[in-house]
């Protein structure tokens, strides 16, 4: 088991270096540097441009800048945002809990709804329910997030007034951030009203962000279940006279879960990607919105650091999924 984990970890290192190099290079390929993008119609005298570039270290050869950056990263220093002058790491840490909270709830929503829907669809294969679930999940999968978000806002927030339009907490409340997770912070502060408000604010973004993973989970569960339900051991279990629920819950689901867990793990990437749009629509103060602004402002250190940290998160989750996979299925860990 330990060897298995070590092999997986060693594969992370080249990926990590690759991500660092690519983000470093790609953002610099975008025309306009951090100084030029904030200069308007007036332009900037060439001497002043050189002076400012020098101050930011942008006048040095690219490889030099890259080595400096890598050197910093290895020592845990992601640099300072060119715009706010705060440390990139501290900005990320301030904003990331908001994204994480949203992503976790979206995933929870996708699993809690998607898993049973997939199971029932598989068990009642060919029924109206099955067709319904598959039709809806196909629609959900192809739904443009931006449009879907606005649609929900117009219907539920503006039309019915059931949910707030955007934000994380009603403006009445001011809760000093401790963990950065609004649901936890409000409870810790003993502000139950604020807790409900935070929960209320989470509903729409959670649904919007959870829609694609929900569709994926439902479809995956259905096909995995169908496959397993056709196996000999299921027939044997039924022949033994086990109750239908037990056959499905114990024998079929446990085996069908393996591909489903993998897919859930892979959805973390989708979630963080989708968070960028969802956060913009719902004015959600997370890393997605922050990254978009960093691109617009050519804030190199913020963007590099942000992408790197997100990539690290995704890699860690995938690693955990791989390990969990081994736990769920002994065949995998013993074959290596």
């Amino acid at each position: 088991m330990l060897r298995f984990i070590l092999t997986r970890v060693s594969l992370v290192i080249p990926t990590f270096l690759g991500v660092t190099f690519l983000t470093f290079l790609l953002i610099r390929l975008v025309p306009g540097d951090p100084i030029e993008v904030r200069v308007g119609e007036r332009g900037i005298p060439p001497e002043r441009l050189l002076e400012l570039r020098h101050e930011l270290g942008l006048d040095r050869p690219l490889w030099h800048q890259f080595l400096d950056y890598i050197g910093g990263v290895l020592q845990g220093d992601l640099g300072v945002s060119l715009v706010t002058r705060n440390s990139v790491f501290s900005e990320f840490v301030t904003l990331f809990p908001a994204t994480l909270e949203l992503a976790a709830l979206a995933m929870l929503f996708a699993t809690v709804v998607g898993l049973p829907a997939g199971i029932i669809a598989a068990v009642r294969r060919g029924s109206i329910f099955d067709h319904g679930v598959m039709g809806i999940s196909l629609t959900g999968y192809s739904m443009p997030i931006f449009w879907w978000g606005l649609l929900l806002i117009l219907f539920f927030s503006v039309g019915l007034g059931w949910t707030p339009v955007s934000g994380r907490l009603d403006l009445l409340y001011y809760v000093e951030p401790v963990t950065g997770f609004m649901l936890i912070d409000t409870l810790m502060a003993g502000e139950y009203g604020a807790f409900w408000s935070a929960l209320h604010h989470l509903i729409l973004p959670m649904i919007v962000l959870g829609t694609v993973p929900l569709a994926v989970v439902a479809r995956m569960t259905r096909s995995a279940m169908l496959e397993v339900l056709g196996e000999d051991y299921i027939r044997t279990a039924k022949a033994k006279g086990l109750a239908g629920k037990r056959v499905i819950g114990m024998h079929a689901l446990r085996n069908a879960l393996i591909p489903v867990v993998t897919v859930i793990g892979l959805q973390v990437g989708t979630l963080l990607g989708g968070a960028i749009l969802t956060e913009t629509i719902f004015s959600w103060p997370g890393v997605g919105k922050w990254l978009i602004e960093s691109i617009n402002r050519r804030d190199y250190p913020a963007l590099q650091g942000g992408v790197l940290l997100i990539a690290t998160t995704v890699m860690t989750v995938n690693l955990l999924v791989d390990v969990l996979y081994g736990v769920l299925n002994p065949r995998i860990r013993h074959s290596r």
Partner: peptide
């Protein structure tokens, strides 16, 4: 209240 999208 920072709200980047005009429709929102």
């Amino acid at each position: 209240a920072i709200t980047p999208d005009a429709a929102v």
